[in-house]
Structure formats: C-alpha cells, structure tokens
Amino acid sequence: MAYPADKSAHHLLPACRRGDRRAQEAFYRLHFPRLLPICMRYLRNREEAVGVLNHAMLRIFQSLDDYREEQKLEAWLATIVRRTTLNFIRDEGRARRRFQPENYDPPASVANAAPGQLNAEDILKLLQALPDYLRVVFSLAVIDGLPHQEIATELEITVAASRWRLAKARELLRGHYQSINRINESLL
C-alpha cells in the first residue's frame, strides 16, 4: 500500500517508528524539499547537501521515539538537519580542509541581479560561491539569526573570527552585487 503524498507527517510517524520502509519513503519525500535548502546554504553543492541530509534523516528515523507530539515537527526536523550539517562541517574543519581561505569565485550570472529581488536559487548560487569558512558564518548569522557567541561555539572559533568572517562575506557579496548591477546597467 502506497502512502498518499499529502498525508500528514503525524500519521506517518507510527509506521516510521515500526520501521515500515514505505512510510519512511513517504516521510522522506514529504520533508525533503523543506529540509534540503537548510543543508544547501551551508554546503558547497547539491550532492554534498543530499548526502548530509540523508544522514540527518537517518538520525531522525532513529530518534522518532524521542519526538514529543507537542513539539512542532518542522522545527524539530530543521534543528536535527542543521546540527547534523554543522557536525559534518566541524568534522571537516578538524581535518583543516574546509576552513582554509579560498579565492572568491562568484557565479558568472544570476537570473535577476537586483539586490532585493533575487530568487532563492540565485541566493543559494551566490552563497555557495562563497568560501566555506565565510558561507557558514554568513548563513548562521544572517539566515538563521544566531548570535556570534553561539556561532563561535558551534564552529569552535573565536567571536572575533566570527565577526570578521561575517564582515568579509558581506563585503564580497556586496561587491558582487555592484559588479552585477554595473553589467546590467550597461546592457540596458
């Protein structure tokens, strides 16, 4: 029996707890579109984000017994996905690969270049062009709204480093905006 796509996640939870594979697939397909952008704004590309999201979903299936009904399921899932993503980044950072400074290589073009009119795909494209050590701080500070103290704790860096990375990311993105605007004005 196939589970309907629009069936509420709460109805899928008991079957998922029992390990029903079809229920797990329906749960996965239902929440995948909302959870994948969380990974994508921290990681480099979609393939990496899908890999990390699968590990986060595995943790979700293993922790369904801990979920309480009064909690908001969407927020609970997002929290697990974000923590799994940060753990992944931190593990890579321990290997001293991810947080090495890199050159900023912005995307060649975005669909619409007005600063306040970018769609989500273009925003993600710009974010993923940022160096890793800047993109993570920018996403945590601007998109998730975490304070620098918490960012520093999550990434095992200093507060000053977190501030500097956020300023650097803003500077790069702003400069990229200006260059795109100049190109668009010349084309008009």
Binding site: R29, P33, I123
Partner: peptide, 10 residues
C-alpha cells in the same frame, strides 16, 4: 526568500 523556499522533490 530562503524561509519560503522549497527544493525540488527527491
């Protein structure tokens, strides 16, 4: 924008 964003289905 990102809060309302939904990725393509898996």
């Amino acid at each position: 924008t990102l809060a309302d964003h939904k990725a393509s289905p898996p």
